[in-house]
Design a protein around this nucleic acid. Structure first.
Length: 340
DNA sequence: AAAGCAGACAACCGCATTTGT
DNA sequence: GACAAATGCGGTTGTCTGCTT
C-alpha cells in the first residue's frame, strides 16, 4: 500500500496549535462540516498545517463531543476491563467511552492506570499478578488490592497471626491448583471493585463485561449450571494462551469468551451469552504470545459442544472444595467471599 | 529565586488499512 | 488486480507545568 504523504510539506507549521489556528479550524469545520478531505482542508481554511495535523487537532481537542476533565472511577475501571480484553486497542476502548479519545485514554493509561496496577501487583500488560511466588509481596499486594473493597475490613480485622491469614499462608506454597486459585482470587478481587454504572451506559453490552468482571461472588454459587461449560472455556483459555498470533495482544487473560471482533465494521462488539460466565483468570503458560480471539472462540464453541458436562475437575470444582473444607468459623476464603 | 525533575498531555511519526481510480 | 491517495491507529516524543531541592 502506498504511504500517505507525511506532514513534510515545505514550510508547514508543526508543534503546538495557537488559539488563532484553533479558531480558524473550528470556524471552517462549523461552516463546511467534515465532508471534505482532511488533506485539502488546511489549504482551503487558510491554515499552514498538514491535513493530518488538523484532523488530530480536531479529533483530540477541538471537537465539541470531547469530554474534558479527569477520568471517573467508573471510566477507569472500564478502561482496565476493556484493556484486559482488547489490549492496546485504544480506539476500540475509546469507542466504549463516550466523549473520550483514544489519545486521551492512551495517555491516561500510561500516566495513571499503569502505575496504579503495578503498585497493586498487577502486570498492566497481562493483567495478572506479578511474582505470585513471592509470599511477602503477595500478602502486601493482596492486602493492598483489597483496599477499595469491603473485603479490606475483613482483612484488617484479622491480625497477622489470625487463623485466616495462617490458612492463606499455608496455601500459598502448595502446588497447583491451589496456587492458581489464589491467583484467580487475586485477579477477581482486583476487578471486583463495585461499579455504579449509569443506566445509560449499562445498556451498553460492553459494560456488561465490566459488571460481569465484578461478580466475584458467582464463584460461590456452586449450583450454577454454567460452571461445567465454563470449565471447558477455562481450559480453552489456557490453551489459547499458548498459541501465537499478531492480531490480539494481551487477550489471553481476563478475556471474556464472548468478545468478538466485527471485521465488517472494524469495531469490537460483545454478545453476552451467559450472565454468570467466568473469564479465564490465569493463563496457563508464562508465554507472552497472544492468541486470536476468534481462534479461542472456535475452540470454545467446539469443546463446549463436545465435552460432556463436568467432564473434568475444573477450577470451579476446586473452588467449591476449597470453600467447603475447613471447619473453623473464620475460615479465610469462606469469610472473604461470603461476607463481602 | 533558580535549577532540576517528574507528571501530564498534546502532537508527531511511521505503519497499516481503507478507499478511489 | 494494481496502484496511489486518504484515513486510522498505536507508539513515541516534545513541551508545558507544578513540585522539590
Amino acid at each position: 500500500m502506498g504511504r500517505a504523504p507525511g506532514c513534510t510539506g515545505e514550510g508547514l507549521k508543526k508543534g503546538p496549535w495557537t488559539p488563532e489556528e484553533d479558531q480558524i479550524l473550528m470556524n471552517y469545520i462549523h461552516k463546511h462540516g467534515l465532508r471534505g478531505s482532511w488533506t485539502a482542508l488546511p489549504k482551503q481554511a487558510g491554515l499552514n498545517r498538514c491535513g493530518k495535523s488538523c484532523r488530530l487537532r480536531w479529533i483530540n481537542y477541538l471537537s465539541p463531543d470531547i469530554k474534558r476533565g479527569g477520568f471517573t472511577d467508573e471510566e477507569e475501571q472500564m478502561i482496565i476491563n476493556l484493556h484486559s480484553a482488547l489490549g492496546n486497542r485504544w480506539s476500540q476502548i475509546a469507542a466504549q467511552l463516550p466523549g473520550r479519545t483514544d489519545n486521551g485514554i492512551k495517555n491516561y493509561w500510561n500516566t495513571h492506570i499503569k502505575k496504579k496496577l503495578v503498585s497493586s501487583g498487577i502486570d498492566p500488560k497481562t493483567h495478572e499478578p506479578i511474582a505470585p511466588n513471592d509470599l511477602n509481596n503477595f500478602l502486601v499486594n493482596f492486602s493492598h488490592s483489597l483496599s477499595t473493597s469491603n473485603l479490606t475490613n475483613l482483612m484488617m480485622m484479622n491480625s497477622v497471626d489470625s487463623p485466616a491469614l495462617a490458612a492463606l499462608r499455608s496455601l500459598v506454597p502448595q502446588p497447583e491448583p491451589t496456587t492458581q486459585l489464589l491467583q484467580n482470587l487475586w485477579q477477581i478481587i482486583n476487578t471486583a471493585n463495585p461499579i455504579l454504572l449509569p443506566n445509560t451506559i449499562q445498556e451498553n453490552n460492553l459494560l456488561n463485561y465490566s459488571a460481569y468482571s465484578s461478580q466475584g461472588n458467582v464463584l460461590v454459587n456452586g449450583t450454577d449450571a454454567a460452571y461445567d461449560q465454563d470449565s471447558s472455556i477455562f481450559q480453552n483459555m489456557h490453551a489459547g494462551a499458548q498459541c501465537s498470533g499478531k492480531d490480539f495482544g494481551n487477550v489471553g487473560s481476563g478475556l471474556r469468551p464472548d468478545v468478538l471482533l466485527d471485521d465488517a465494521v472494524g469495531k469490537s462488539s460483545i454478545f453476552p451469552q451467559k450472565e454468570d460466565m467466568l473469564p479465564a483468570l490465569v493463563s496457563a503458560s508464562s508465554t507472552d504470545e497472544p492468541c486470536g480471539v476468534k481462534q479461542m472462540m472456535n475452540q470454545t464453541s467446539v469443546q463446549a459442544e463436545t465435552l460432556p458436562a463436568a467432564s473434568s475437575s475444573s477450577a470451579f470444582d476446586t473452588w467449591e472444595k476449597l470453600l467447603n473444607e475447613g471447619d473453623g468459623e473464620d475460615y479465610f476464603y469462606r469469610d472473604l467471599i461470603n461476607d463481602p
